[in-house]
Amino acid sequence: MHRSGRPTGDSTRGRRFEVLTGLVPLVVLVIVWEIIGSPDSPFYPAPSSWWPALFTRGQGEDIIPAIIDTTRTFSLGLVIATIVGVTIGIAVGVSARTDRAFGPMFEFARALPPAAMVPVATLLLGFDEPMKIVVVVLAAVWPIMLNTRTGIRSIDPVRLDMARSLRLSRRRTIGSVLLPAVMPAVLLGVRVATPVALVITLLVEYLTGVNGVGALVGDAQRTFQPARVYALIVIAGLISLVVNSLVRSAEERVRRRHGVERE
């Protein structure tokens, strides 16, 4: 057996190289697009025309506030979905009776397409930020709730016996044993819910025209500015990339703390 393990410097360089290889198709696509597309095409305007299109006719001032709006709706929605999802997940996870009582209702709510909730939400809450957040929460809460429930159920019975035999109070059992034990499951749920929340944020903005990048996309589409549409989509993609990497690194940290990385 040869024992020349690669030095770490080499392997990080190797991984970085792999990431770069992963970008090749995207780069090729953009280059091909640039070559065959023209700035005036109504369908496929060349990528080089996208960035300037953001700022034509004094529209540049809308971009930053729109990004802030979208990010705020999305993050508030995700945070509220996490709090609600974890609370419900723990409640139905620890008690089979609660699970039976609320299970069918949750199944029904989960099966509703979030887009179908938009008209109802606008009726009840108006064209405003709370409406957007409610729709995002309704879509993003399920993966978090289901993962939390599964996480609670898969806690080893010995661990629960331990908490009982140490005569920990209910509050301390939840805070010191249950919550930390389900953290990896919760974060997995959050990671699944993150793209959902972002998609729904953009969708609601697009459908209702209430602020944000999605509303600008709808606006640009209706006013025949394809280059601007693509530019906004790239911005949405970048927001998603940043948020995903944040969630992923948080998940990684928690998993390491739980000693799960030895798997």
Partner: peptide
């Protein structure tokens, strides 16, 4: 009160975090 339990399965009985 005043009784402590020790389990065989220390992996589950201890909190790894």
């Amino acid at each position: 009160d005043g009784v402590s339990l020790v389990f065989q399965d220390y992996t589950s009985a201890l909190l790894p975090w």
